[in-house]
């Protein structure tokens, strides 16, 4: 990833253009025309973000300062009351803890597994295409369908425990205990989405020049140190991108939690985004729900900023 690379300095004006400019001096120099084209090119995207992202965020801030009665449609300005309520909410600390465990778990397992599969598949043998397809296939299955099926399989008398029983293991009642429920939501989430990271890693691995490996081998490096000293640094830009996208995705996983555990048992899997949903849509508390949503947004922003700042420390750039 080379996002920091600046667009190239304006190239020396080519002779033809120079000639054109000389022949007809007008307001529309190549440079001006270029600037205008630039703005026009980004206009649709910029307008989309402004109208469908920034404006709604502003409106959400307004909602968070109000109290709503959904049955009468009455809106009352309450100032910082919803923000003060954050401190008095006895459930919030547990929710934040669950959010950290879930997102952390998803990121660690997702990146590790994605990298592992990519490394295993980054060679030529018969069936590699088949495996690539198999590992990627859950990505195209809808989240709802995928999670419903896992819900059956994870029941006490479901398929997972049936399988474990066949090899003599007495499986736990997955979704009924806090720890195993958390493991279940993390794993089902990772299995469904790791395919994308796997492909990105595969792409990155295939971009590592073969000569570097040759050179390392000639130097007698072990495969472990080749991986640590050559592979990892060279794919670190991809790692950064995947970590950011995976963190953002994990913080927004709603359907999985709702279908598998409903946030239980005992709030153990109630992550922030699910809590936002409950407050705003189940308890009809739009004001507090918006306040929580904005808190979630600030977390995402902060985390991303942090990773962006830290990238210089561990991301290797070819240029």
């Amino acid at each position: 990833m080379t996002t920091t690379t600046q667009p190239p300095e304006q190239v020396v004006v080519p002779a033809a253009a120079k000639a054109r400019r000389a022949s007809g001096p007008s307001f529309w120099t190549t440079r001006r025309r270029d600037v205008l084209t630039g703005y026009l090119f980004i206009l649709p995207q910029l307008a989309g973000v402004a109208v469908f992202v920034l404006l709604p965020v502003g409106m959400a801030i307004w909602y968070s300062l109000n109290d709503w009665n959904v049955f009468t449609g009455k809106q009352t300005f309450v100032g910082g009351e919803n923000y003060a309520a954050l401190a008095d909410d006895p459930q919030l600390p547990k929710v934040l803890l669950a959010t950290v465990i879930f997102s952390g778990g998803v990121v660690v397992v997702n990146i590790t597994l994605g990298l592992l599969i990519a490394v295993l598949l980054n060679r030529r043998f018969r069936g590699v295409t088949l495996f690539r397809t198999l590992f990627f296939s859950p990505v195209v299955v809808s989240v709802v369908a995928w999670t419903l099926v896992w819900g059956f399989l994870l029941q006490d008398n479901g398929g997972i425990n049936g399988l474990l029983g066949a090899v003599g293991i007495d499986g736990p009642n997955w979704l009924q205990h806090g720890d195993t429920a958390m493991v279940s939501v993390v794993i089902t989430q990772v299995i469904r989405s790791v395919g994308v990271n796997m492909v990105l890693f595969l792409a990155a691995l295939q971009g590592v020049p073969e000569e570097l490996y040759e050179a390392a081998r000639i130097d007698g490096a072990s495969s472990r140190s080749v991986f640590a000293r050559i592979t990892l640094p060279l794919i670190s830009p991809t790692l950064l991108l995947t970590v950011i996208v995976t963190v953002v995705g994990a913080l927004q996983s709603f359907a999985q939690i709702a279908v598998l555990t409903g946030g239980g048992p005992e709030l153990s899997t109630t992550v922030l985004v699910y809590y936002v949903f409950q407050q705003a849509f189940e308890f009809n508390d739009i004001g507090y729900g918006s306040t929580l949503a904005l808190m979630l947004l600030s977390f995402v922003m902060l985390l991303t900023l942090l990773q962006w700042q830290l990238r210089r420390k561990w991301v290797f750039y070819e240029d």
């Binding site: 992202v53 404006l55 709604p56 965020v57 959400a60 953002v248 913080l251 739009i286 979630l296 947004l297």
Partner: peptide, 10 residues
């Protein structure tokens, strides 16, 4: 970065 939960109501 903005979760859809933030923007959906507005």
């Amino acid at each position: 970065l903005v979760p859809s939960e933030v923007t959906i109501v507005p």
